[in-house]
Amino acid sequence: MRKVITFLKEQTKDGLLPWSAQDATAKRFSLSHAAVELLALQNGIFPARYQRNKNMIQIEEQLRLFQSRVAVIGCGGLGGYILEELARLGVGQIVAIDPDIFEEHNLNRQILSSPANLGQPKVAAAAERLAQVNPAVTVTAIQDAFCLANGFELLAGTHVAVDALDSISYRLQLAEFCNLAGIPMVHGAIGGWYGHVASQFPGETTVQQIYRHWVAGKGIEQQLGNPAFTPAVVASLEVAEVCKILLGKGEPLRNRKLSIDLLEMEMQEISYAPAPVTLVDAA
């Protein structure tokens, strides 16, 4: 390993490690791109691909992102943008979960879809895209539907779960699972010009409260559909939440929900009562 580190340091220019050097190191020492990036970050070498992160994400934070595992549940409208942004941010392990294949009606908004991959699994497109965007990221593609029953298998070791589902009932299962497993969840939903975002930490019930009045079926997306831009907006807000939660900085949307209206360009914040604190046995 010392040889590798010395080689990496020799390739560093102005405190930055160019991608060509990362790639050459992987080939020369028969290491994965992930292994090379980990060694670089652990030894204070900043990969040049993240240089524009540098004034907001310090090298130890970049290492923390790289050592994080984030699951994206749903690889459609929201999920496609979320996956793209997580990989570019430098989150090292990304789990992409979706049972579906691409269909023509996905083409107006789902960034992973194209006429060439209609009929292909969404998670296969996700793995292919992320391998192109950031080869140092390890992607686990799971072509399956998330539910309470398979949660522990699918989300093992996950630091944050990102909701990119299109079903309220599955979303409620994800929220319930995340509480059981002690995983923070970033929730997002869209319909037409509208969307909302919230983050739920273990022990909180924000998502359950948001869908408190839900009985069955879908929301306004059933009538309105979803355009190209709403998923991109809500997905980006979700990734900002993931970044803050992983790094423990800023103020996540905790016990509050941000509602977005892109037609009138209005944002509303709704407060939720904090979850009751479980009292520890005084004895």
Binding site: D166, A189, Q268
Partner: peptide, 21 residues
């Protein structure tokens, strides 16, 4: 809540169900 009783001076806001992804 839907059951909440309203009082003079309250501001009530209603949002439709949004659930897509």
């Amino acid at each position: 809540e839907l059951d909440s009783t309203l009082s003079h001076g309250d501001t009530l806001s209603l949002f439709p169900l949004v659930g897509g992804g």
